[in-house]
Design a protein around this nucleic acid. Sequence first.
DNA 1: TTTTAACCTGACCAAACGGTCAAGATAAAT
DNA 2: ATTTATCTTGACCGTTTGGTCAGGTTAAAA
Lengths: 225, 225
Amino acid sequence: MTSFKTDAKQDRHVGIKSAGNGAHKAAIRQENEEQILAAAEQVFADYGFKGATTARIAEMANVPKANVHYYFSTKEVIYRRIMEDVCDHWLQAAMTFDNSADPAVILRGYIEAKMDLSRARPYGSRLWAHEIIRGAKFSSDYISTTVKDWLDSRVVVIKGWIAEGKMDDIEPYSLMYMIFATTQHYADFGRQIEIFNDNRPLSEEQFAEAKENVVRIILKGVGLR
Amino acid sequence: MTSFKTDAKQDRHVGIKSAGNGAHKAAIRQENEEQILAAAEQVFADYGFKGATTARIAEMANVPKANVHYYFSTKEVIYRRIMEDVCDHWLQAAMTFDNSADPAVILRGYIEAKMDLSRARPYGSRLWAHEIIRGAKFSSDYISTTVKDWLDSRVVVIKGWIAEGKMDDIEPYSLMYMIFATTQHYADFGRQIEIFNDNRPLSEEQFAEAKENVVRIILKGVGLR
DNA sequence: TTTTAACCTGACCAAACGGTCAAGATAAAT
DNA sequence: ATTTATCTTGACCGTTTGGTCAGGTTAAAA
């Protein structure tokens, strides 16, 4: 971990200096900010907003604590930045809704994208879970505008499918909540799943099977395919 | 809140004193412990283990902070107590598995019981979510023994149904995780659902409809009924 | 009535907290 | 070569933290 970071820094030191034009300083900044954000995502996931400490973020990012505050004024700024970034990725996972293809294809694509995000970025998902569990104190505005608009537009699409008789008459919100819950469970409750799985993280094969099961149950459950 | 507590205390003061035999002191103890546990459940749900403060628990329980430590030696003791109590209730919700009735009836009963617990005790669910998200540091032993045994025995039952051709060939763990995730989502992400629902908590009717939708999608999804 | 055991609590403490700052190091611009 | 702007960091500060404790009150037992 430590050696990785040091190496990367030195690589850049050598590789970019010749490019001149202040690129080195810019690279240092980018490198450090990324390092801090990545560390913070993990620490916030583990301890929540209040429980996370800047000292621990600094330690995990391999920078002195004062340096964390050089790049980010407060703990809250870091937290908000990660929070919105995670949610933006989720919203983009529903791009499949936009091309008006077969509902089963659209829903499958969305569920699979969501599962993949849980696998690829579990800390971000867990940070979001913390945020909502504690009452969405920082994010209620964002949710009631951006996220709600996004959700409502998908609900309209689903209602269209129902009206056309393409799927069962299911309350669309219930369906979307089920997709949120189930896909994010594989990140948020990953530790619990790991314990049930004889204390081993799900293998690629196991995860792929889980993903396929989730898709199958939900699609069939709403009368698609 | 305050008046409720004071009244209750005085009621007991009058009502039980005549019973004699140290019942009053015992009643005081029980009353205070319950008050503290109820307050702690909420505070832990809101802030997680590290973020929760004994001062806030005390304030919410309407007792001086020192009194919290008179009844419970440490914050951790309170936390563990609530945690296991919540999980025990969940395990009992799967009692329906024991009478060998129709799979659809059993699964419906379990899902409905789980939904009802999310509605009745959201803070407990959120405390558990915190605990797992941060890595199940206090509960991994409990999960890998008691809870795992419980889960595995239900998985056996489901595999039996599959073998008898009563339902689709679904990986039972995927199904159980989906039930965990979806039912607990209504507690853990209750604030998010509330925001989507025009900033109003789900009414009894809305919740009942959600419950029925969850049951329908999952039962049909696994080929039951 | 006296004694005893349980309950109550303001005041306190060492440790940990988020954030600041001055002073030094480094690299870009002049 | 010198100035300027950015990056780095140990030391520090006021506040909050979980937990303690001595000295009090109250109710049960003797």
